[in-house]
Amino acid sequence: MTTTRERLIEAGLRLLLEHGYNDLGIQALLKETGVPKGSFYHHFRSKEEFALQVIDRYMEEVHLGLDASLGDPTLTPLNRARRFFELSREKYRQDGYMGCMLGGLGQELSGVNETFAARIETCFGEVTSRIASCLEEARRQGELPRDSEPLELANLLLNCWEGAALRSRLLRDPAPLDRMLDFTFSAATRAS
C-alpha cells in the first residue's frame, strides 16, 4: 500500500516537471492526491523540503537508468553510455517531451536559491561521474582516442543533452535529442 508521503512525492514528480517550483501550488498537490494540508506538513516542513525530496526520488530513477544502461554487459562501453541517454529520451517521450526535471528546476531556481543550485549540481555531478567511468573504460578499450578526457567528455555530453532537452521541450519533438546524440557520439570517436 502506498503511503501518504509516497503519494505526495509521486505526484510531485509530475507536477514539478510540468509546472516548475514557483508554479507548484501546495493546494493543487493536495487536491490531486486527496491529502489534507496537515498531513503534508506532517511529512514535510516546507515546500522546499518537499521539492528536495522529490529531486531525491527523481535521482533514484536516474540511477536505475544508469544501472540498466551502464551495467549492460551486452553493449560496448561507448554504447552503454549512449544507451543511458536513449533511455532518458524514451522517458521524456512518455512525459510528453517535458525534458529533465533537474534541468528545468536548475534554470528556474539556480540563480535565486543556493540550496537548489547546490543539490542539482550534486545530482549532475553524480551522473557525469558514472558516465565518465564508462567512458574511461571505452578509452582503455580503444573506442575513444587515447588522449580523450572521460570526465570532460561526460560533462560535455550532459551539458549538450540538457540544452537539447530544453529545445525538445520547446518543440515537443525528440529531434534535438537525436541530433545531439548522433553528432556528439560521432565526434567523440574521431581521432584527435
Rank of each mutant, 00 (worst) to 15 (best):
T2L: 12
T2C: 09
R5Q: 08
L8K: 07
A11K: 06
G12D: 01
G12L: 00
L13A: 01
L13S: 04
L15H: 03
L16A: 01
L16I: 00
E18K: 01
H19R: 07
H19Y: 04
G20I: 00
Y21W: 01
D23W: 01
D23L: 05
L24N: 00
G25Y: 00
I26G: 03
Q27V: 15
L30K: 03
G34K: 07
G34M: 10
V35E: 03
V35H: 07
H43S: 07
R45F: 09
R45Y: 13
S46I: 13
K47L: 09
K47Q: 06
E48A: 12
E49V: 12
E49L: 13
Q53H: 12
V54H: 04
I55V: 05
D56R: 10
E61G: 11
H63M: 08
L64A: 12
D67M: 04
S69L: 05
G71W: 10
P73R: 02
L75Q: 01
T76K: 11
T76E: 12
P77F: 01
R82V: 02
R82H: 03
L87I: 04
S88P: 06
S88L: 15
S88N: 13
R89V: 13
E90I: 14
E90T: 15
K91S: 14
K91D: 14
Y92G: 03
G96Y: 04
G96K: 00
M98K: 13
M98R: 14
G99C: 02
C100Y: 13
M101P: 01
G106L: 07
S110W: 09
S110V: 07
G111W: 14
V112G: 11
N113W: 04
E114A: 11
A118E: 13
R119C: 04
I120S: 01
I120H: 04
E121I: 12
T122R: 15
E126N: 08
E126S: 06
E126F: 14
V127L: 08
S129K: 09
S129Q: 10
R130F: 10
E136D: 08
E136H: 10
R139C: 04
E143D: 11
L144F: 12
P145W: 14
R146E: 15
E149K: 14
L151V: 06
L151Y: 11
E152W: 14
E152H: 09
A154D: 00
N155L: 07
N155K: 07
L156G: 09
L158S: 02
N159I: 11
N159H: 13
E162M: 09
L166S: 10
S168V: 00
L171I: 04
R172W: 07
P174K: 05
A175M: 15
A175P: 08
P176Q: 06
L177S: 01
D182K: 09
F183A: 11
T184H: 06
A187Y: 11
A187F: 11
T189R: 15
R190K: 14
